[in-house]
């Protein structure tokens, strides 16, 4: 098995939104970041992968199976944004409940993770901060021999220190080549730190699914005036955006463009800028 998750042609229609033929994969041992603006289809995709919603077309293969049974579900760790567990529970009670739900539950691992994350065992979860709740959800996800972690907006609303802690935990998990992570976020800087691949969803469609390093190292942004923009070979333009005083143009091969247009300013580009250009700009011809 080369891929922990393969999504092919996933389609789901709602009254005012359509997930349209979404396809990408999560290779074993990798971290895939799912990016896109709010309402782009990230959570819908994750919900379909987890079987929370029924797909209309396409296929989803999780850890080698199209219809994940309980054995497969044991190997999937899931972290949702917001609350995950009853707030009156202490982590001790949660441990007892999970022990009776997961056959592969590792109490020792869970208690060690609680200690590592400085989470109390006797306090009710309602007294936890948002960051502590998120760490608890991750501790649960890591305590039943998960092979695939799926996190939906797990870092949103958290301060940079907690986010960094969580990213470290995820990086640590992904050190094992049999472990994989699919993480959705609109905080692209987080994904720049940890992701191997970036999948960008916009208006229910995958715009691109690429190696992060390829995006960061090869893509570039040309910042130029109207005359320079007109002189550009239109086939070099992926997307462009007219700003107040300049044109911003996304190109796929920064080095080649520097050779082709030596007098033009070509900068490296962040994932945030790529996303903004795709969402707010116009496609090249």
């Amino acid at each position: 098995m080369n891929d922990a998750l393969i999504i092919s042609g996933l389609t789901k229609t709602y009254k005012d939104f359509m997930l349209n033929g979404v396809s990408f994969s999560v290779p074993c041992g990798s971290i895939v970041g799912l990016i896109g603006e709010n309402g782009a289809g990230k959570s819908t995709t994750i919900n379909a992968v987890l079987g929370l919603i029924q797909k209309e077309a396409g296929s989803i293969c999780v850890l080698g199976k199209e219809q994940p049974d309980n054995e497969i579900k044991e190997q999937i760790g899931v972290v949702f944004d917001g609350n995950n567990y009853p707030e009156i529970f202490s982590t001790r009670k949660l441990n007892r409940v999970m022990k009776d739900i997961y056959h592969s539950w590792e109490e020792h691992t869970f208690l060690n993770l609680l200690k590592k994350f400085s989470l109390p065992t006797d306090k009710p979860i309602k007294q936890f901060s948002k960051g502590m709740k998120m760490k608890l959800a991750i501790a649960v996800a890591l305590s039943h021999n998960s092979k695939l972690l799926i996190l939906d907006e797990a870092t949103s609303g958290l301060d940079p220190v907690i986010r960094d802690d969580i990213l470290d935990i995820l990086l640590d998990f992904a050190q094992d080549e049999t472990h994989s992570i699919l993480i959705s976020s609109h905080i692209t800087t987080d994904l720049e730190k940890i992701a191997d691949y970036i999948v960008f969803i916009h208006e229910g469609q995958v715009v691109f699914s690429k190696l992060k390093d390829e995006l960061i190292e090869q893509y570039g942004i040309i910042k130029c005036g109207a005359a320079q923009f007109e002189a550009l070979d239109k086939s070099d333009i992926i997307v462009y955006r007219k700003m107040d005083y300049e044109w911003q143009v996304l190109v796929a091969d920064r080095a080649a463009m520097k050779k082709k247009y030596p007098k033009t300013l070509i900068d490296s580009v962040s994932i945030d800028e790529i996303m903004l250009l795709y969402v707010k700009g116009e496609r090249g011809k």
Binding site: G51, K73, E74, V78, F80, G82, N83, Y85, H103
Partner: peptide, 18 residues
């Protein structure tokens, strides 16, 4: 309703139980 409000309802559907 308590399950729904606490987020457990969604979590319970991804647990290894039908």
């Amino acid at each position: 309703n308590m399950d729904r409000n606490s987020g457990w309802k969604k979590v319970s559907l991804v647990l290894p139980v039908s």
